[in-house]
């Protein structure tokens, strides 16, 4: 009790935001941030491809397609990313699959975001009025042509805001890559903290995450407002 009272403001700042240390750490953490962004971008990009395929399979009337797709979605949304990453990196070697950390990380993020993106695409496609598919089909287009030329281009606009939010979520989740030795922000944060006996690297890491996620979140809500003006007619 006495001990707590003795900590004054100057000491607090020294422990949590030592300016000298912060300047020294910043380049390390920024280069780690660059990696976090690259991992997230690659994971999200592959996730978008996986997500589109899975979403189309899920809304298909063929059970042979829709069942496996919903199993995929439930599997990857129903288990923590942490477990998925550890499974890929630590459990697959038991069957002889040894992946380097960067590859295990990319695969984990891609498979995970694929499941979330699939649900975003599915909702986006289902939000397009039924009359659009009917109009396209009534002009003689096949289901695939109608999807490709009419439904998906409209759904893309609808999914930009939730897709941006998913990107933000994935960026934050990429911090979990530190458990499989990928040198991203959280990994550097921990090593800097233990080397310096100081908490500044934690504060700095949090600030770096915030400086990335806040603008993206604003972008998402800006797009949401902008796109809501262009609703298609029912």
């Amino acid at each position: 009790m006495l001990f707590v009272a003795e900590i004054n403001l100057a000491q607090l700042i020294d422990k949590y935001f030592n300016f000298k240390l912060a300047l020294e750490f910043l380049p390390h953490l920024l280069s780690a941030a660059r990696w976090a962004i690259i991992y997230t971008l690659v994971g999200e990009s592959i996730g978008i491809i996986i997500g589109l395929v899975i979403a189309l399979a899920r809304i298909s009337s063929f059970k042979l397609l829709s069942y496996p797709a919903s199993i995929y979605v439930n599997l990857f949304r129903g288990t923590p990313l942490l477990v998925q990453l550890m499974f890929i990196y630590y459990a697959l070697p038991y069957v002889g699959i040894n992946l380097p950390p960067y590859l295990a990380g990319i695969i984990g993020l891609s498979l995970n975001s694929g499941a979330y993106v699939a649900e975003i695409f599915r909702a986006g496609i289902l939000s397009i009025p039924k009359g659009q598919m009917e109009a396209a089909r009534s002009l003689g287009m096949s289901y695939g042509q109608a999807m490709f030329y009419v439904i998906i281009p409209q759904a893309v606009r609808v999914v930009i805001p939730p897709l941006t939010n998913e990107f933000v979520a994935l960026l934050k989740d990429s911090s979990l890559l530190y458990v499989i030795q990928v040198p991203e922000i959280a990994y550097r944060m921990r090593s800097l903290a233990s080397a310096s006996f100081n908490a500044t690297s934690y504060t700095l890491a949090a600030l770096i995450y915030l400086s990335l996620t806040i603008p993206l979140t604003y972008f998402a809500s800006y797009m949401e407002k902008r796109l809501s003006r262009y609703k298609s007619h029912a």
């Binding site: 009025p129 009359g131 659009q132 009917e134 109009a135 396209a136 089909r137 009534s138 002009l139 003689g140 009419v150 281009p153 409209q154 606009r157 262009y230 298609s232 007619h233 029912a234």
Partner: peptide
């Protein structure tokens, strides 16, 4: 369907 055109109550033009 190419031989039978249809026009709907709700137009259903492609808005994009």
């Amino acid at each position: 369907r190419q031989k039978v055109g249809i026009v709907f109550q709700s137009y259903n033009l492609f808005p994009h």
